[in-house]
Nucleic acid binder design. Structure first.
Length: 796
DNA sequence: TACAGTGCTTTTTTT
DNA sequence: AAGCACTGTA
């Protein structure tokens, strides 16, 4: 075991060494919070606490996995795998699966994502004969979500005088009724939305003394990361769970509280020491991440907020460079400027793509950056926005799997009942739903007994064929694993074939996405241990042992539950060398050597939706604080005079936050010497942009070239990092006897020939068994990754 | 029943 | 700009 305490500073050690009793760690940005959390878990275990008795709630699943790994490294054993670590949502989903019968749910309940939930909202609004122009599904959903996060049930909602008044004034008196119908429909469908995972968990503990006591006894030590972003539901659950032992450790930073829109309340952390007696408070104030310039700017900006815990964040790091301010004409110019600067920094300062992050307030802003990066051939990846699992083709495939696990899942059923087209149209579906509501049966029940409901004979046949097919899948599930089943689904529905036949580039992408989904299922099936579905002995982990007979169902159910709870940050494909683009919210907890914050404009950041109260504005400022403190070495703030929004070029003033930055830390030479957009005589930004003017300062790369000379040509020995240009293949003429070999057993070390790249040696094999990827070192063309399913290789 | 075309609305962040 | 609901035609 490492002497881990020696690797900590004084307050960090103090926090780690505190074993029993409530503990609040106020951890400033970059103060080694994760290190403290992991070390404390290791310390608990080293002092005799059983790993089975520790619960740690993190912000992302990836953070959870990393923590486990780091604890293992410190302790030098594998005890950490017994820890209960995960996000609030995934940990509670797991517990709710085990305890589902206590609250009347099936074990394999479906988790509805936001799209599913909104669709249910829409459905019940229509069924209640309400106008969806008045009751906008979006707004209604948000109200319901807020209520749940405040632990208000639909019954309580309808009886709450204040809420009723509020809705009456807003001209939507039926909101409570919609909430009620929505909740009932979800229950009937055997489904929970994201908020239910918290709400139902609370109800379980509140109403079932045995369950409460069971989990109180199990979780003797509780740790919660990002406590400033917990909402009332989370707060009450933690209070219930921790009530027996009071070994609750919360870590957070009030200055980084940025999730009030989903019910988080900063009060939870501000008031923590009133929730328990004798709360030990430790402040981590030394920042190990950023330069003095960056940290000073951050401190200065946040000091404009009134409501905060006093702390003095400092660093012994270098002074670093000034923060660069860049003003451009349009959002497209902003993109170009950032891409140029990245190129320039790569050449001049030896940075890799992965050292850069571009952060912004809204997902829509990614477009201009994306285009500019693509044009310059800089590899990038966008986090957030339309995630992989939200794509139509992926959701369609998943919908089939959902139906197999839980046929009551009406949303999934509606999605695929006529996709691919099989003659069950809207009329038929509406009719079936009407019957289902009328008889209080599930849509699936109606379809199974369709002959009782007087459908036309042709339609009846289509329905029967569909039902027979789904039933066939369900029976296969008891014999086959999730992956094999998914393949069967893809084949018998013609879904995969249909995508395969679409040869447009979008069609190709869709086909690849489905293949990728299949890969991910394969990975899951091959290694269920990682997912916590079975234990080391191969048994299904389930406290009540109810699922044992249906291991495959459990496994597929677990797969479906975990993918819907995946965070973007959880995706590990991000390890490659790419520039990362994401919202500031998504960047929380991360750090990057060089950070660009785009769109520093009024109405964008602070966002027009969030400037109506002091609370809102202060949250926007905290968001800016989070953005600044992601940067380790260098920080650029950029803004455009005008940008396209809803197809219109719109002018904006520069962000008020820019004026809160002390002059001495700012390099304004790329912002025309000032911050304000107003006060120049160049005509309106819109006019100039429409006349096609670029920004007046030339590209950063061009300027760098002027000052430092042209970058060395590729033939000289490079003293800098060569950007990954799509290197041209050195010509190779295939041997006369070239025949593609069977590469299914290709091994490392084997010599091969490629028609274009020439002769080489296999130096690495990776990828899933059905989609192997070989890294080959070619004599003439260097290392290439070759997908064996597509490329032709001759084994020598 | 299926699909193409038209016109209308959309303004934030996410598990 | 883009996605969605609605309408009209095959």
């Amino acid at each position: 075991m490492r002497n881990y305490l020696d690797e900590l500073n004084e307050p960090q050690r103090e926090a780690v060494s505190h074993i029993n009793g409530p503990l609040m760690i106020v951890a400033g940005a970059g103060s080694g919070k994760t290190k403290v959390l992991t070390t404390r878990i290791a310390h608990l275990m080293a002092n005799g606490v059983d790993s089975f008795n520790i619960l740690a709630l993190t912000f992302t699943n990836k953070a959870a996995a990393e923590m486990k790994e780091r604890v293992e490294k410190i302790l030098g054993n594998t005890e950490a795998r017994n820890l209960y670590i995960g996000t609030f949502h995934s940990v509670f989903a797991r517990i709710l699966r085990a305890e589902a019968n206590k609250i009347g749910y099936p074990n394999n309940f479906t988790i509805y994502d936001t799209d599913d939930a909104k669709s249910v909202v829409k459905t019940v609004i229509n069924e209640l004969d309400l106008d969806d122009k008045v009751y906008k599904p979006n707004v209604v959903y948000n109200r319901i979500s807020a209520a749940k996060n405040d632990l208000i049930s639909s019954a309580e909602y309808m009886n709450d005088w204040a809420l009723q008044q509020e809705d009456a004034r807003a001209n939507r008196p039926q909101l409570g009724a919609i909430y009620d119908a929505y909740a009932k429909r979800c229950f009937k469908n055997g489904a929970m939305d994201f908020d239910d995972l918290l709400f139902k968990m609370y109800l379980l503990l509140k109403n079932n003394p045995e369950s409460l006591s069971k989990y109180q006894r199990k979780f003797k030590y509780i740790m919660i990361d990002e406590y400033q972003d917990t909402n009332k539901a989370q707060y009450e659950i933690v209070k219930l769970l921790g009530a027996m032992h009071e070994n609750v450790c919360v870590v957070g930073d009030d200055a980084q509280s940025i999730y009030s829109f989903r019910g988080a309340t900063i009060e939870n952390i501000l008031q923590f020491n009133k929730d328990y007696d004798d709360v030990k408070v430790v402040k981590l104030e030394q920042n190990y991440r950023s330069t003095k310039s960056i940290l000073n700017v951050a401190n200065q900006v946040i000091s404009n907020n009134k409501n905060q815990i006093q702390k003095n964040l400092f660093t012994t790091n270098d002074e670093g460079e000034k923060i660069r301010l860049v003003r451009t004409m349009t959002d497209n110019d902003e993109g170009k400027s950032v891409a140029d600067t990245i190129q320039e920094q790569k050449l001049r300062n030896h940075y890799f793509n992965k050292d850069f992050a571009i952060l912004y307030r809204t997902n829509a802003q990614s477009r201009s950056f994306e285009e500019a990066l693509r044009r310059m051939g800089i590899a990038y990846r966008i986090y957030g926005g339309m995630s992989f699992y939200q794509r139509k083709e992926v959701k369609d495939m998943i919908a089939y799997l959902r139906i197999i696990v839980n046929p009551r899942d009406e949303e999934a059923l509606k999605r695929i009942i006529n996709y691919p087209v099989r003659g069950i149209g809207k009329t038929t579906l509406d009719k079936a739903v009407l019957f289902a509501n009328d008889k209080n049966l599930s849509l699936w029940d109606i379809l199974c007994n369709a002959s009782m409901y007087g459908f036309k004979s042709g339609t009846l046949e289509s329905i029967d064929n569909f039902v027979t097919m789904i039933k066939m899948f369900q029976s296969e599930l008891n014999k086959k694993n999730a992956y094999d089943l998914a393949i069967i689904v893809g084949k018998s529905t013609n879904l995969v074939k249909e995508l395969f036949n679409d040869k447009t580039s979008e069609g190709l992408a869709r086909y690849e996405n489905v293949q990728e989904l299949l890969n991910s299922i394969k990975e899951f099936v091959d290694d269920p241990l990682i997912q916590g579905v079975i234990n080391e002995d191969g048994e299904v982990i389930n406290e009540e042992d109810e699922l044992q007979s249906k291991q495959n169902t459990a496994s597929l159910g677990a797969y479906l539950q975990q993918i819907v709870l995946l965070t973007d940050a959880d995706d590990n494909k991000g390890e490659s060398d790419v520039v990362k683009l994401m919202t500031i919210h998504a960047a929380k907890g991360l750090e990057f050597p060089v950070v660009f914050v785009g769109g520093m404009e009024e109405t964008l950041f602070p966002n027009a939706m969030a400037i109506n109260t002091r609370e809102e504005l202060e949250e926007e400022r905290r968001l800016f604080y989070v953005a600044i403190t992601r940067a380790k070495h260098k920080l650029w703030l950029t803004y455009a005079n005008a940008r396209y929004r809803f197809g219109q070029l719109q002018q904006n003033d520069s962000s008020r936050f820019l004026e809160e930055i002390p002059e001495e830390y700012l390099d304004k030479s790329y912002a025309g010497g000032g911050i304000k957009n107003t006060g120049n005589n160049w005509g309106s930004a819109a006019q100039r942009a429409q006349r096609g003017f670029g920004n007046n300062f030339g590209t950063a790369a061009a300027q760098a070239e002027k000052r430092y000379g042209a970058p060395p040509s590729k033939t000289s020995t490079p003293s800098y990092i060569v950007p990954k240009a799509p290197a041209k293949a050195v010509e190779h003429t295939p041997s006369a006897d070239f025949v593609a070999s069977d590469t299914s057993n290709l091994q490392e070390g084997q010599k091969v020939e490629h028609q274009k790249f020439g002769f080489g040696e296999v130096i690495k094999m990776e990828g899933a068994a059905h989609n192997p990827i070989a890294t080959v070192k070619f004599e003439l063309n260097g290392e290439k990754k070759i997908m064996l399913n597509y490329a032709k290789l001759r084994i020598l």
